[in-house]
Design a protein around this nucleic acid. Structure first.
Length: 815
RNA sequence: GCCCGGGUGGUGAAACCGGUAGACACAUCGGACUUAAAAUCCGAAGGCGCGAGCCGUGCGGGUUCGAAUCCCGCCCCGGGCACCA
């Protein structure tokens, strides 16, 4: 690799400043300072998603995410804010545990080692972290409060244990939250997830669905992230309708539909095979077939159950229901395309207007009746596929001729009067299953006593310490490895003093990360999870930057937990992150970096070779931060040369009045950089600085001191070490981040006096000419008509029309 | 299937609100310096054409004096959701 060796030695400069930051506490607050918010400005909580400390060490994706966030934090600090920028480690969970099992090292040894290595790497990149306030979710000092949090939810009735169909991963031997199942597969190991009826701990996040959705309207978050959350919550507006079961007295099948306007077209019904009503209503002659089908469905995993391209299956129960609109008797079937988890677990089938029902009806020769006519089709033509759009009602009695939208309301209202329907909203969101039959997590702080039942562990007994056990490998038994250790789980009942058993499940990792931002300012506090005064001062988080892979998981759970804590009176805000920006993904050769593809970039070598400042600047220069980019080895020399040239320019600068052209460019660059940093548009900010440097050094000229001094401040968020060193060599004292102010610009000076004017004839470029800024249309037109090339294209024809864009162009329309 | 984001030179990319397409870089080529190389500095460069010029932002239409940008219809890539009733 080729090197400059003359003057700038990044590794040396960077080590010097990293050591000095530590010695002088440049980036850290003492607890007292944090409490007084520094005193020279407003607090700014700059948060980034804390990493999972993998054994492979910090990867480029981490550095990319953190650099973009760190630049924003350093920029805010230069603008005078008191910036709190903490970091921590999200080290519990299946990921760590699986790796520990694979290498045969106990997680209690593995994790501290990984954390140590991550810490070393993070320091080397020069992030502005407050190392006095870090958190590690696996320390008893932290998970004590995670358990406390569980108890608050338990006491409020939000954490409940219930039997329900849950996602069981046969690879990881544990249940999973819905959010952790991707297309029927475990997000960790890719195994096909099975549905099992198990008693598990749930958080009732569905009670918060509407608030979680509604607040998205005003949150200042990336649109992509908000959209993903909204889709995940998945609100559907419709009606719940009762279909009386023929010959079963009062019993009826309740269905949820978003299309009550199609009710007249409901020619049969389908229950989920698991539906409890099946047993009571199935006709004796059909009972055997029904039982066989139910057993077959119970044996299928989620991947196969939820495949949309397979042929529909189902059986007739022999029971019949009354369509409340037509009064007709319609058959009740069971089929696995109807899911027990959504709505009521039963549907009214309208084959003419729902593709799934259409396919089912075709296969089993059930009647298809059109009740909606589209804008321009004849309602009598037979259908090749369901018409699922809206339209005008037909074959619908007194509703004929009404349009869908009105009919939805009218049909529902009519049935409502008869007590057969009600307006209903459904959400795709499920309750959050938080128990895991694994080892590496905080034990759920619940006790079971034969006489007193389930009891919370008294708060003063927290933390319930996770014991060190050797046989922490999970099995298919459905219970945690902790259940093999009676010496741990047998304890005294706080109610009656008799023997009680501890809950042996641990909680989901996402519970650890759902509140870590609240802990940061209070890290180390042994009395409280989060100090009320510090929380008021520093929260909610001012800026949160992270990846969209957590749009539904961490970000949703954090919002939920924050709402709960507000409702329980622990905090006074309900949204944890005032601003959130999602960064893009850094890829290599157009594909995601992964070990299996063999295209993982190891950052350490680049940092040693070129320095952290270069690496940071390079990553930000690759492409738009919020879109990501393609890592190319060769590209790093651009930013490397830039920083070297900047170094030379600053150190060779002399005291002398600013050249007018340089001054204009300086103001324009400050303006551009300021706007771009606000918008996280780092790649264009760097390009603007490069352009400015090209002007400052044009033709090998000696730069003016006044041209380079503000430059050092502008580059500081990107290349903090270099900036500190240059600041010192310019004879300034103190850290640039404390002593310097972000440069300001004069809008009048940011624009040039002379502009290059474009002359078009019939919209085609025919001439360019320098003109004074602010030139009038008349003068511009006269100058344009004077140009020989313009005349040539006008060919003596009359100018029919002139388009004038001030300071930009004249377009002469002829012919 | 539905909902997003994207498609611009050899490459990464830029382009405010519809107004010079390709800024800034990488790689390339040429030059200076050097015994030589590296480093550094200066310069060239979308394609076609000797040239005036013509063509050019995934494809096909449209609106407009003027379209990478707006509208309609497609294709491809990436992401999210998905028998969600």
């Amino acid at each position: 690799m080729n090197h400059r060796t003359d003057s700038y030695f990044p590794a040396e400069v960077e080590r010097k400043w990293q050591a000095r930051w530590d010695e002088e506490g440049t980036n850290t607050y003492t607890d007292a300072e944090l409490r007084s918010t520094g005193g020279n400005g407003e607090p700014f909580f700059n948060l980034m998603m804390f990493p999972y400390p993998s054994a492979e060490g910090l990867h480029v994706g981490n550095i990319y995410a953190f650099t973009g966030a760190d630049i924003y934090g350093r920029y805010q600090r230069l603008r005078g804010r008191d910036v709190f920028e903490p970091i921590g480690f999200d080290a519990f969970g299946i990921h760590s545990e699986n790796f520990a099992l694979k290498v045969g090292t106990h997680p209690m040894e593995l994790i501290p080692r990984n954390v140590e290595r991550f810490t070393r790497q993070l320091r080397r990149v020069g992030f502005m972290y407050d190392w006095n306030h870090q958190v590690d979710t696996t320390t008893p000092d932290y998970y004590r409060w995670t358990q406390w949090l569980f108890l608050q939810l338990y006491k409020a009735g939000i954490a409940v244990k219930k039997e329900a169909p849950v996602n069981w991963c046969p690879g990881c031997n544990t249940v999973l939250a819905n959010e952790q199942v991707i297309a029927g597969e475990c997000e960790r190991c890719g195994s096909a997830v099975e549905l099992r009826n198990l008693s598990q701990w749930f958080f009732r996040i569905t009670d918060y669905a509407e608030r979680l959705l509604a607040n998205l309207d005003w949150l200042d978050w990336s649109d992509t992230t908000k959209r993903m959350q909204a889709n995940w919550i998945g609100r559907s507006d419709g009606a719940e309708v009762s279909f009386p079961v023929v010959g079963h007295g009062e019993s009826s099948v309740r269905v949820f539909t978003t299309r009550p306007d199609t009710l007249f077209g409901a020619t049969y019904m389908v229950l989920a095979p698991e539906h409890p009503l099946v047993e009571t209503i199935a006709a004796p002659a059909h009972a055997d077939a029904v039982e066989r089908y139910r057993a077959a469905v119970a044996a299928t995993d989620l991947v196969n159950r939820k495949k949309t391209d397979k042929e529909k299956t189902g059986v007739d129960t022999g029971a019949r229901a009354l369509n409340p609109a037509t009064g007709e008797e319609i058959p009740i079937w069971i089929a696995d395309y109807v899911l027990m988890e959504y709505g009521t677990g039963a549907i009214m089938a309208v084959p003419a207007h729902d593709q799934r029902d259409f396919e089912f009806a075709r296969k089993f020769e059930l009647p298809i009746r059109r009740v909606i006519a589209g804008a321009d089709d004849a309602p009598d033509t037979p259908l090749d596929e369901a018409y699922s759009g809206e339209g005008t009602l037909v074959n619908s009695g007194r509703f004929d001729g009404m349009d869908s939208e009105e009919a939805k309301r009218e049909v529902t209202a009519t049935l409502e009067e008869r007590g057969l329907a009600s307006v209903k909203v459904n959400y795709r969101l499920h309750d959050w299953c938080i128990s895991r039959q694994r080892y590496w997590g905080p034990p759920i702080p619940i006790l079971y006593c034969d006489s007193c039942g389930a009891l919370p562990v008294p708060e003063e007994q927290l933390p319930v310490i996770l014991p060190r056990i050797a046989d922490y490998k999970p099995d298919a038994s459905g219970v945690s490895p902790l259940a093999r250790h009676s010496e741990w789980y047998l304890t005294e009942c706080p109610g009656c003093g008799e023997e009680a058993r501890r809950e042996t499940d641990v909680s989901d990792t996402f519970l650890d990360s759902s509140w870590y931002f609240l802990r940061y300012p209070s890290a180390g506090n042994e009395e409280l999870p989060f100090d009320p005064q510090l929380t008021r001062q520093w929260l909610p988080v001012d800026m949160y930057i992270g990846g969209n892979e957590h749009a539904v998981l961490h970000l949703l759970y954090s919002r939920f937990i924050t709402m709960v804590l507000k409702d329980l009176g622990h905090i006074d805000f309900e949204e944890p992150f005032a601003r959130f920006r999602a960064h893009g993904l850094i890829v290599k050769d157009g594909t995601k970096m992964s070990k299996s593809r063999g295209n993982v970039v190891v950052p350490d070598e680049y940092i040693e070779e070129y320095g952290a400042d270069t690496f940071r600047t390079y990553l930000m220069f690759i492409g738009p931060y919020q879109e990501g980019g393609d890592f190319r080895e060769a590209g790093i020399t651009g930013p490397y040369n830039f920083l070297n040239r900047l170094w030379d320019a600053v150190l060779s600068a002399e005291e002398r009045p600013l050249d007018a052209e340089v001054e204009q460019k300086l103001h324009a660059t400050i303006k551009k950089c300021t706007e771009d940093l606000e918008a996280l548009s780092y790649n264009t900010a760097i390009a603007a600085m490069m352009e400015y440097l090209n002007v400052v050094r044009a033709g090998g000229r000696v730069p003016e001191l006044a041209a380079v001094e503000p430059f050092v401040v502008m580059v500081a968020p990107f290349a903090p070490h270099l900036a500190e060193e240059l600041w010192e060599r310019l004879g300034r004292s103190g850290s640039i981040f404390d002593a310097a102010e972000w440069p300001s610009f004069d809008p009048a000076k940011a624009i040039a006096d002379e502009v290059e004017f474009v002359v078009q004839v019939n919209g085609k470029l025919r001439a360019r000419m320098p003109m004074a800024r602010g030139i009038t249309e008349q003068d511009a037109r006269t100058a344009a008509l004077d140009d020989p090339n313009v005349q040539r294209f006008i060919e003596g024809k009359p100018v029919r029309k002139t388009i004038f864009v001030p300071d930009r162009l004249v377009n002469l329309v002829v012919g």
